[in-house]
Write a protein that binds this DNA or RNA. Structure first.
Lengths: 217, 217
DNA sequence: CTAAAGTTGTGAAATATTGCACAGCGTGAT
DNA sequence: ATCACGCTGTGCAATATTTCACAACTTTAG
């Protein structure tokens, strides 16, 4: 219905997610309005950038009173979230996978990891961190059954590409990849790789070039 | 000694780290040369970008034979690594922290997590995933003693800022932050935040805008 | 020896992203 | 009622990053 503005940049989407989380915190603390310069600190940007980001969600600011927090949360959520809670799959229940299960288990109201998959038959059928673990063979079927279109990939590097291929063929729409391997996809599947090793090596590198000051994701 | 080229972008540093990892794999498989277009696939960029990145390390390519892998690894390492292996500290030995200990424990020859810290006294003194766990009180002293200047922060959001402050005051030079909180620092401390929740929400968002195809870190 | 094919290094264009700066407006003080 | 102040929305400039495109060079084939 709403005339869809062309394209919101990935960076902006990330920041909106961070703003929302912070806004929820503020709301819990009893605040009801924020200024762009307050929000700018949590992403180390400028106030102008925040205002620009917020314009994307259909701006609600009010001169000299700032933004109304609850309204802002609502608008950001309208943009970021689907109408219904998203079901997520976790692939790979090793150390990292289990940690992620724990990490993402808090009270999220827009998504939920509903199933875990692992190639180790010993894990199949068990409940791990509150989620049922299935065998990899069941993946294609379960993705459809549970209406999952986003997956978290936490398998070893060696199997990342093969598993990703399976996911894509099973109709997944987005993958958050923790394996230190690039995933190629001709199709329209969105892949976000969090390369922890590169991130650490980058930190190590810049620990010696202590010039700049830096930001986030 | 070498006239230091002004500034290498963070993006480039990340990609160099990824190239190197891939190059090591190739070397193990017996290959001894690569072309820029082969490397470009592992970061989903263009060949030109790879060549540009490699120029930063002092380019060694050879027309129509590509780059010699072992030489490239050596040059990238010369740029990325310090002369000596870097000691890293992990702060926060919860689920995520332990997973990170495991994740980073493989055979790394340029860095090593040598100590873990946690505010829970019950963990202090124990060996977790092969690393000794210290109490937070010991942090300032141990950082100096072990010559640690990079830390991985895996504490809950609530304590992230306070702990980061302690780290900075103790002279840390870079922080890889997993807590969903922005860390502010006036000083020249490098902070890299890996916001897993934002990353997942971004993936969820783009799972519905299945237009583009995307890359990495 | 010559030509064809394929690759590197890189200037220059194209994009993407960020920051500046100011008009316009609401608020509170006088 | 008026004015000073502070904040938003945004055009525009400044950066940062990526891609294009092509000259120069190597190898291989004929």
């Amino acid at each position: 219905m709403s005339k869809n503005q062309k394209k919101i940049s990935e960076k902006t989407i990330e920041r909106l997610s961070a703003y929302r989380r912070y806004l929820k915190d503020l709301l819990k603390k009893g605040k009801d309005r924020v200024y762009s310069h307050e929000l700018s600190q949590i992403v180390s940007g400028t106030a102008a950038q925040v205002r620009r980001d917020l314009m994307e969600v259909g701006c609600n600011g009010c001169s000299s009173k700032g933004y109304e927090i609850s309204l802002l949360i609502e608008e950001i959520s309208k943009l970021l979230d689907c109408s219904d809670k998203q079901n997520i799959a976790l692939i790979g229940v090793g150390n990292l996978g289990r940690a992620l299960l724990g990490y993402f288990s808090g009270s999220r109201d827009n998504f939920d990891i509903v199933a875990a998959f692992d190639s180790d038959p010993g894990k199949s059928g068990r409940i791990i961190c509150g989620r049922r673990c299935y065998d990899m063979e069941q993946l294609p079927a379960m993705l459809g059954e549970l209406k999952i279109n986003t997956a978290i990939l936490a398998v070893p590097a060696e199997s990342a590409e093969k598993v990703a291929q399976t996911l894509i063929e099973s109709g997944i729409k987005a993958i958050l990849n923790f394996a230190p391997r690039h995933i190629t996809t001709g199709s329209g599947v969105f892949i976000e790789t969090l390369d922890m090793t590169s991130a650490l090596e980058k930190a190590i590198y810049f620990s010696r070039k202590n010039t700049q000051q830096r930001k986030s994701t």
